[in-house]
Structures are given as structure tokens and as C-alpha cells.
Simulated assay, not measured.
Amino acid sequence: MPTESRLGAGLRLAVTTFTTAPVRPGRVDRATAGTAMAVAPLVGAVLGVVLGGVLLGLSVVAPPLVAAVVTVGCGALLTRGLHLDGLADTVDALGSYQQGPAALEIMKKPDVGPFGVAALVLVLLVQSAVLADLAARSWPAALAAVVTATAAGRLGVTVACRHGVPAARPEGLGALVAGTVGPVTVAAGAVAVALPALAAVPGRPWQGPLAVAVALTAVLALLRHLVRRLGGITGDVLGASVEVATTLVYLGVVLSG
């Protein structure tokens, strides 16, 4: 049987990492992981099409808020809730005011503290409110917004794995993917995500790409702070990057709408 290409193995790993799609796990090594992190926005875009379809389909037979909440729930189910878990753990570590190993130990605990709960509630409420607003808009704009936000969230992971960003631990997902993505790949991913963003806000084609730029800037600032506090990235930090970028893009496409 011919050996699977690096791109094929990377796509397979990206799908199994970022979704619950029934794909058999393939090769897992640092080179493959780097490819997976590079193509993460593509997986996010496909997931966004699915979630956009759920939102638009439900909005035909249910109130916009109901359609929005169910869509957010589907997003959590289709990703095993890993990104939400990463957000909660990361915010708990930041809220503890601990640094280094002490903060990492807090992130490893299975329980969720008050800071993590607050972050989860805020993110879920904001995403549901935005999706309810999008459900009342034209379907091309709503679909473009969901695809953009979902892809941008995974672009946050690509940004977190760029060259020069260390891992906080010598083991785990962070150690496998830290520093595996080059600057050209990050730039190409940003341009690709900005394309559907052009259609996210009718009459203001600049607003969607601007929302993506603001979200990525916020992720960069968060990553810089986390590297100082933790010493590098972890799998939880990647999950937090997904939720922060996704939520900020959602906010950006409905402001002044």
C-alpha cells in the first residue's frame, strides 16, 4: 500500500483533531502536525458550512434564538467541546495570578473554576446572540459570517503554532505543534479567511476582513501574555485561541448592523 502523503496525513490529523468526523487516525509526527495546523482554517471553513446550514435550516421552522442556541450546541458537539474546555482552563490559570508550573498545574485540573465558568457563559451567550441576529439576515451573508468566524477560530491555532512560539511543556499537543507553521503559511491563511469575510456584511465588504484582523490581533496579544505567564503554548491555549477568535469575528460582523 503506498505511503500517505504529508498533506493527506496532515488533513486527516486536522479533521480528527478539530472535529468528531468518523475519520481513521493516521500518521502522527511533528511534520504531519505542522501540516494539520496549517490547514486548520480549511477544516474550520467546512465546519462553518455545516453550522451555517444548521442555523439557516432551523431558522425556517424555529425562532432565531432557538436556531442560534442549537447551532452553538452543534458546534460544541462536533468538536467534542475541546475548545471550550481549553478556554475555561486557560482563563482559570490566568485568573489564579500564578505563573509557570503553578499555572500549568491549574490548567491540568479536571474541574472548572469561577473564572472559567464566567468565560464559558460569556462566550456562549455572545455567540448565541450573534447567530440569532445572523439568522434574520440574508442567507448568503449569514452563511459567509458563520464560515468566516469558524475558519478564523482555527486560524487562531495556526497563528499560535507559528515559528518562534515555544511549548509550555515538553509533552502534549503543545509540544507537538509549537513552532511548526511558517510566516508565509500564516499570511496565506489570513488572506484565505478574509475572502468569505467580504460577503459577511452586505454593503460593507470591508467590515468582515476588519473583524478578522481585529480578532487575530487580539489572539496575538493573548498569546504574547500567555507565553510570558506559562512559558509557551499548550493544547488548552490552542482551544482558547479558537474561541476568542471565533467570538470576536462574530461580534465584528454584527456591530452597527
Rank of each mutant, 00 (worst) to 15 (best):
R224D: 13
V186K: 01
P183E: 09
A221W: 15
A199I: 10
G208I: 11
L251E: 04
T217F: 13
V253F: 10
A211H: 12
P209N: 03
G235C: 06
L230M: 14
A218C: 13
L198W: 09
G239I: 01
L210W: 06
G239F: 03
G239E: 04
S241F: 02
V201E: 07
P196G: 04
R224A: 15
L230E: 10
A240H: 05
R224N: 10
E243P: 03
V244L: 15
G232K: 07
P205E: 00
A187K: 00
G208Y: 04
G232E: 05
G239W: 04
A215F: 14
L226D: 10
L251K: 05
G231T: 10
T247Y: 12
G231W: 14
L255S: 10
V237W: 06
P183M: 12
V191G: 00
T246I: 00
A211F: 14
Y250L: 15
T234C: 09
R229N: 10
V242Y: 04
V214A: 14
V249Q: 06
A200Q: 09
A197L: 07
T234E: 13
R229C: 12
D236N: 14
L226T: 07
L255Y: 10
V184E: 04
R228T: 08
Y250M: 15
A221H: 09
L216I: 11
V201S: 06
L230C: 14
P209E: 01
L238K: 07
P196C: 07
D236Y: 12
A200Y: 05
A240N: 02
R204C: 01
T234Y: 13
G235M: 05
A187C: 10
V237Q: 03
G232T: 05
R228D: 11
G235H: 07
L223N: 00
P202W: 09
L220I: 05
A194R: 03
G239M: 02
G203C: 08
V254R: 03
V184G: 00
A215K: 09
L255V: 15
R229L: 15
V253Y: 01
L230P: 12
